[in-house]
Nucleic acid binder design. Structure first.
Length: 445
RNA sequence: GGAGAGGUCGCAUAGUGGUUUAGUGCACCGGUCUUGAAAACCGGCAGGGUCAAAAGCCCACGAGGGUUCGAAUCCCUCCCUCUCCGCCA
């Protein structure tokens, strides 16, 4: 959500953001409603002032005057009631539109219609380290893993080594269901453990947040109303109960922890790290990535969230800091990856600046998204009413940022495929060996 | 599932129809004093809307309705929290 005053004063910027982000919103309609809202409120306020004044004077009046006053007030009440209804109606509509107004993208964000507009700007692998593709495009092409033999995809590897069973998963859970088995289970928990330890060392407080959430949390994070289809709604036997949802990430709950709070500037930044299951309906992507465990309905994720001062420079610094933490995970795992500057058409409505990190997945012969790093400035904080008091006593909304630390099993695709050997075995990444208890996963004879 | 008690500033509380522009304490911030700190004292310390801004005005005591000239206070509905009992990983 943006400040209505900002919207009024910066209509061109907002309209450009709506166009660039391809949001279905008529800003003029919102501005008309806003004007109407203010007119009605002014009118209502003057009626209320009349009423307040009359009530104060009432006890002092003579009984004759009281009778006259009562009649007058009845008229005021009638008008007030009618006006209140109008205001309420306008406010509902106004609020609905306000929820749709996108954040203004950063000056560094490329304008583009879809994922083809995203700009890769940083590549990495163990051998070459960081490569800047603008300076060294040939070297960037060398980042992906090379194989001297015909590779297998994670589905085949997972089946042969008894690590992933999608057939049984589909039988039990339906389309996109899966079972993780044996070393894959240990790897997933090892990854989560490593991620949590790293985040604690970086000064983040660890949380296991609720993933069953009320709708305010999803409105707050920006997943509602636009992304409603992505979210599972829980069917309650008791229909009178409040509707709850299965969140697709711990971000809504991590943010909702601070909903309605006024923090102190000295307590910022707040750094939290959540671990949770994540649920996504994947409605709207039925035909995409149907094989394996790339696009699935449930997975586990360690997520980092920062609440910082309302300062563009500081926000940018945290976006980079969180990107480095995520890169650190991939570097620990020695997996080749690249970082993309996400363009306007591929970023969410609330985002100011966004990076995706994509990890090399040999069977796709491409990088696949494994991390998503976003700065939402105060867009979420306005929805969630998360403020702080500055040292000189001003009230401002915090900036919020979030990024993946590790998401599994998607990252297992990269691990299994990049670490596969000619004989069909998989070398366990060094950092995971203590958790898996072996150096290599071989086919059982 | 049954019974009860509550929801007022960060926390704790006062407030049972008009003197409430919602009081007090703790915490917090600033100051005086002090070598520094503590203590004491002084001051600040409640959000939202309207407005270019300030003043003013309006709204806000869980939410929504109602009674009343007037509601934190009375009534209704809902939500939430806590306590006890029951059930339960």
């Amino acid at each position: 959500m943006l400040d209505i005053k900002f919207i009024r004063d910066n209509q061109d910027k907002v309209k450009k953001a709506i166009t660039d982000k391809k949001i279905g919103l008529d800003l003029d309609q919102l501005l008309d409603l806003d004007a109407k809202r203010r007119d009605l409120l002014t009118e209502l306020e003057s009626l209320q002032a009349t009423k307040n004044q009359a009530s104060k004077e009432f006890p002092k009046l003579s009984s004759e005057d009281k009778k006259v006053k009562l009649l007058e007030m009845k008229e005021v009440d009638t008008k007030t009631d009618a006006l209140k209804k109008q205001v309420a109606d306008v406010l509902v509509e106004y609020q609905q539109l306000m929820y749709l107004v996108p954040n203004i993208p950063s000056p560094e964000t490329p304008v583009g219609a879809d994922s083809t507009g995203n700009v890769p700007w940083r590549y990495w692998n163990t051998a070459l380290g960081v490569v800047d593709p603008t300076k060294d495009p040939e070297k960037a092409k060398e980042i992906p893993s090379k194989f001297e033999f015909e590779i297998k995809d994670h589905i085949t590897l997972g089946k042969e080594l008894d690590l992933i069973d999608t057939e049984a998963g589909v039988k039990t859970s339906g389309f996109r269901g899966y079972y993780l088995k044996n070393e894959a289970v240990l790897m997933q928990y090892g990854l989560i453990w490593l991620a949590l330890k790293k985040m604690q060392e970086k000064g983040f407080s660890l949380m296991i947040p609720p993933i069953l959430v009320r709708d305010f949390a999803l409105y707050g994070s920006g997943h509602f109303p636009a992304g409603r289809d992505e979210i599972y709604k829980i069917e309650n036997a008791d229909k009178t109960q409040e509707q709850i949802y299965l969140a697709g990430t711990s971000e809504p709950s991590l943010l909702a922890y601070y909903e309605g709070k006024t923090l102190q500037e000295k307590d910022l930044p707040i750094k939290v790290c959540g671990v949770s299951s994540c649920f996504r309906s994947e409605i709207g992507s039925y035909g995409k990535d149907t094989r394996g465990v790339y696009r699935i309905h449930e997975f586990m994720k360690v997520e980092q969230v920062v609440l910082c001062k309302a300062d563009i420079i500081e926000g940018d610094q945290w976006l980079e800091a969180m990107r480095e933490i995520a890169e650190g995970m991939l570097q620990d795992l020695k997996l080749p990856y690249r970082v993309l500057n996400i363009c306007t058409g591929d970023m969410g409505a609330g985002k100011y600046k966004m990076y995706d990190i994509e990890t090399w997945m040999p069977s796709r012969n491409d990088f696949g998204e494994t991390h998503s790093d976003s700065n939402l400035t105060d867009w979420q904080a306005r929805r969630l009413n998360i403020k702080y008091k500055t040292i000189d006593g001003k009230i401002k909304h915090v900036y919020t940022l979030n990024n993946t630390v590790i998401a599994s099993p998607r990252i297992l695709i990269a691990i299994l495929e990049n670490y596969q050997q000619k004989d069909g075995s998989i070398i366990v990444p060094e950092v995971l060996r203590p958790y898996v208890g072996k150096d290599i996963i071989k086919k059982q004879p």
